[in-house]
């Protein structure tokens, strides 16, 4: 069940939780990820959907937050990482098509693995619980379909 062991997962999860909690206790903000795509679009698009108050109010901190996420992974790689810089071998077409579906789906659903998964479930939101069950179920279906079709990675 756990070919890579359990501790890196538990420690990683605790560190993520500490980051989210730190932001919440200081500011009351739920530091979630996928709204970044829509809020950043408000700088470029006049479409009313992107000009909503929630995106205008959050677009600046979401960019600082995203820059932090990237930098945090850089710091990990330069300090405690056992394998250093790392490149995935998942095919580019999977990233492009999958990425489109992730961007579209998370915004339609109003949340992703962090918004529904961490902050929503921690808020005891039944909506988020339904969303999490749904995206994990369809993630499992999609990943196994790829395997069955013989697409290795």
């Amino acid at each position: 069940m756990f070919p890579l062991g359990i501790w890196s997962y538990i420690i990683g999860g605790l560190i993520i939780g500490i980051g989210v909690s730190f932001v919440y206790i200081l500011t009351g903000i739920h530091s979630t990820q996928s709204s970044l795509f829509s809020s950043t679009m408000s700088y470029f698009s006049k479409i009313p959907y992107f000009q909503r108050k929630t995106y205008l109010d959050s677009r600046e901190w979401r960019l600082y937050f995203a820059a932090g996420v990237i930098l945090g992974a850089v710091i990990y790689t330069l300090t405690v990482s056992p394998d250093g810089w790392w490149t995935s071998s998942v095919g580019i077409w999977r990233l492009v098509i999958g990425g489109f579906l992730v961007g579209f789906g998370t915004r339609l659903s109003s949340g992703c693995t962090s918004g529904h998964g961490i902050s929503g479930v921690a808020s005891l939101s039944t909506t988020s619980v339904f969303a999490v069950i749904t995206f994990i179920l369809f993630g499992v279906i999609s990943a196994n379909l790829m395997t069955m079709l013989g697409v290795a990675i």
Binding site: Q33, S34, L36, F37, A66, V69, I70, L71, G72, A73, V74, Y76, T77, S81, G84, W85, W86, T87, S88, V90, R94, L95, I97, G98, G99, F100, L101, V102, G103, F104, G105, T106, R107, L108, S109, S110, C112, T113, S114, H116, F130, A131, V132, T134, F135, I136, L137, F138, G139, V140, I141, S142, A143, N144, L145, M146
Partner: peptide, 27 residues
């Protein structure tokens, strides 16, 4: 939305936050 996200997640192996962190590890 969660269905569409799930299908994409299983295809790319990436959710929004993890994609940013993936860039940070050099991917």
């Amino acid at each position: 939305g969660a269905i569409i996200f799930g299908l994409g997640w299983g295809l790319a192996g990436l959710c929004p936050g993890a994609a940013l962190a993936s860039l940070g590890i050099g991917n």
